[in-house]
Computed example of a mutant assay.
Amino acid sequence: MVKIKNILVSQPQPADLEKSPYQELITKHNVKFEFKKFFSVVGLSSAEFRQSRINLTEFSGIIFTSRNAIDYYFQLAKDLRIEISENMKYFCTSDQIAFYLQKYIQFRKRKIFFGDSTYQSLLPLLKKHKDEKLVLPCNDSPNEELYSMLTANNVNFQKAVIYKNENADLNGMDIKSFDLLCFFSPSGISSLKQNFPKYTQGEQLIATYGKTTLQAAEAAKLRVDIPAPTPTSPSMTMAIDEFIKAAKKKK
């Protein structure tokens, strides 16, 4: 069993590390964290988007699954000089995403609906508004779980790729100097494989968060030692904590 001392997190460092769950692990298990975003998110230009021949004014509702989608949608609408109808309906996967809309619209004057952070929670909302023609702003990484669910339930929607993920340049990083690598999206796995084409996992541990990240890791023939969320560990830090405690008990 590899002793975990150095951990690489494929995300930016929290704004206040000392008040984050990572600090609890540092104090509790004497581990070290390094934070490095493995990819960046870039919005499509209006010229790039026009190539899709999608007319955003044809839709009466929007499905938002992230803050990125909101930011890039409204930026694109501005670039295209599109005026968004006051009758537009917004379907968000969580209340946090719904409240983020206040950055761009008068929250109380619009028709906004949100789920409980799961894709399935959107279905009852969408079925109540089955006559709406919906657009799903997304990135260029397929979210087959969401697309399949919407299609299987006959939701009238169209994907609109409005932003994309670009792999970061990790040249100079000694990827094998870490005992544990933590990934939060399929894009992180893609960046690992592109930056380190000769990478072999060996005894190095890998943690993933989310079903699609786990699937991407397995598709890349990586061994996932710490999957999250689980019933006992709903967050990445809790899953790491649980793994380290279990490893100590085996000694």
Rank of each mutant, 00 (worst) to 15 (best):
residue 215 Q to I: 09
residue 134 L to M: 07
residue 237 T to V: 07
residue 132 E to Q: 15
residue 193 K to A: 08
residue 112 I to L: 08
residue 103 K to T: 12
residue 20 S to L: 10
residue 200 T to A: 10
residue 171 N to M: 07
residue 47 A to W: 02
residue 200 T to L: 12
residue 97 I to R: 07
residue 249 K to C: 01
residue 44 L to W: 00
residue 211 K to V: 07
residue 181 L to W: 04
residue 24 E to Q: 04
residue 120 Q to W: 03
residue 23 Q to D: 12
residue 17 L to K: 10
residue 235 S to I: 00
residue 87 N to Q: 14
residue 204 Q to P: 10
residue 105 I to G: 00
residue 65 T to W: 02
residue 238 M to Q: 13
residue 173 M to E: 13
residue 148 S to N: 15
residue 230 T to P: 02
residue 32 K to P: 00
residue 129 H to F: 08
residue 235 S to H: 03
residue 183 F to C: 11
residue 83 E to N: 10
residue 243 F to W: 13
residue 89 K to R: 10
residue 205 L to P: 01
residue 245 K to T: 15
residue 87 N to H: 11
residue 115 G to E: 09
residue 179 D to E: 04
residue 191 S to N: 09
residue 213 T to R: 04
residue 211 K to C: 01
residue 43 G to Q: 06
residue 52 S to N: 05
residue 92 C to P: 15
residue 143 N to R: 13
residue 53 R to W: 06
residue 118 T to F: 06
residue 13 Q to N: 09
residue 214 L to D: 14
residue 198 K to N: 09
residue 34 E to C: 10
residue 86 E to G: 10
residue 185 S to W: 00
residue 217 A to F: 06
residue 207 A to F: 04
residue 102 Q to F: 01
residue 128 K to I: 13
residue 21 P to I: 04
residue 15 A to V: 14
residue 114 F to Q: 02
residue 202 G to N: 12
residue 187 S to C: 04
residue 153 N to W: 08
residue 1 M to P: 14
residue 174 D to F: 07
residue 132 E to D: 13
residue 166 E to S: 12
residue 121 S to E: 04
residue 46 S to Y: 02
residue 243 F to A: 08
residue 157 F to D: 05
residue 166 E to C: 10
residue 61 G to F: 01
